[in-house]
Design a binder for these strands. Structure first.
Length: 362
DNA sequence: AAACCGGGGTG
DNA sequence: CACCCAGGTTT
């Protein structure tokens, strides 16, 4: 694996990036002090938020908790207050926990080896290596989103970098390319290149120090690499619901406080898997309450994409001729069409009702 | 509306 | 150990 030419090529890659970083990279970021506590805080903030936003939060956070000992001594609420607005509070809790672990396990001195750093909560391999190379001169490669993008393009690596196989290949590459010295500047160069030149959209290949050897550039495949996450196949969830109307109102049901659409108003759900079942269930639903509709009409489904599944809502329309004796209870109530606009409805239900009450005969 | 992203949780 | 998710923001 270590032919002379490959070693030379690796050294050249690193040397080229480090030269470029000296001239065109970022050197004035507030956490570029080589001081482990600040570097660590910035790395955690940068996992979730862009540099421009982090700068302000970082300054305030470091003013409030100037040292690792100060952070460890603070109570969790104070940490959360100063993280407030950044989101992802689990990371703030890990930061706080890790500060306390440094006090107890490492006597207050930030650990200096990748393995010890990685043993702290909220710090994985890549973040540990970044801290070790910036602060302790370690020759430890990182592999974050920026680096994955640079590698995929420069070396023409196909396949989604989130898969085990591609990620292992990239880690191996990261180790091969790691130079014998200048670990910090090289790591910074990779980060800067990914953040400022080899960006996801509209990469500035004319400003890239390794454009001359970039596979994506040569083949015009910058937009295809890295390969995107395969579209996840979201399971289809089919839900039948009763759309019970009078000429000027619609029956809505308050959903439970927990779970999907918690606390919002929606159509009463029918326990049914098929349209036939749903029809029967709708009739039974009405009969139990002493109601009679001329017919129950199955309307076209409305779809709504959730993170984890695709919802297809099939409305079964039943019309009552006029005001009904059927009284509301704690969860069911008649919503006047006139006030529908202000009701707390999930977006797809609102779409459905808007369409139905606009085109339906009132 | 979908993509993004390191670490942690889970099966 | 391999995969999947949560969580806000950006595109």
């Amino acid at each position: 694996m270590n032919t002379h030419s490959e070693v030379a090529a690796s050294d050249d890659f690193a040397a080229t990036l480090v030269r470029w970083q000296r001239q065109h990279g970022r050197h004035d970021l507030p956490w570029q002090t080589g001081e482990a506590y600040g570097v660590w805080v910035s790395e955690i903030m940068l996992q979730q938020t862009q540099v421009q936003t982090v700068i302000g939060y970082y300054a305030r956070f470091m003013q409030r908790f100037p040292t690792l000992a100060a952070l460890a001594a603070a109570d969790e609420a104070a940490v959360m207050e100063n993280w407030s607005g950044l989101g992802y509070y689990a990371r703030a809790r890990n930061l706080h926990r890790a500060a306390r672990e440094v006090m107890t396990r490492f006597g207050g001195d930030f650990p200096r080896t990748v393995d010890d750093i990685e043993s702290l909560p909220g710090i994985g391999r890549s973040t540990a290596s970044a801290i070790a190379s910036f602060c302790f001169g370690a020759q430890a490669p990182i592999l974050d989103g920026n680096v994955k993008r640079v590698f995929a393009r420069v070396f023409g690596i196909d396949g989604f970098p989130g898969t085990r196989a591609i990620e292992q290949r990239m880690w191996a590459l990261a180790h091969e390319l790691m130079p014998a010295r200048d670990g910090g500047p090289y790591t910074q160069a990779l980060m800067d290149l990914g953040a400022t030149v080899c960006t996801r959209n509209r990469p500035r290949c004319d400003a890239c120090p390794v454009a001359d050897r970039c596979v994506a550039q040569a083949q015009g495949r910058q937009r295809e690499l890295p390969a995107p996450r395969p579209a996840r196949v979201r399971p289809l969830r089919l839900v039948h619901a009763l759309l019970l109307r009078t000429p000027d109102a619609v029956l809505l049901e308050r959903r439970p406080g927990q779970g999907i659409w918690g606390g919002l108003l929606s159509l009463p759900e029918l326990a049914a898997q098929t349209e036939t079942e749903a029809q029967a269930e709708a009739q039974r639903w009405l009969a139990v309450r002493g109601l009679a509709a001329d017919e129950v009409q199955t309307l076209p489904a409305v779809s709504h994409g959730f993170t984890h599944f695709e919802l297809r809502l099939v409305p079964l329309l039943a019309r009552l001729p006029g005001a009904t004796q059927f009284a509301a209870d704690s969860t069911l109530h008649w919503q006047p069409l006139a006030t529908l606009a202000t009701a707390a409805l999930p977006a797809p239900v609102r779409r459905l009702l808007d369409a139905q009450t606009r085109t339906g005969h009132v």
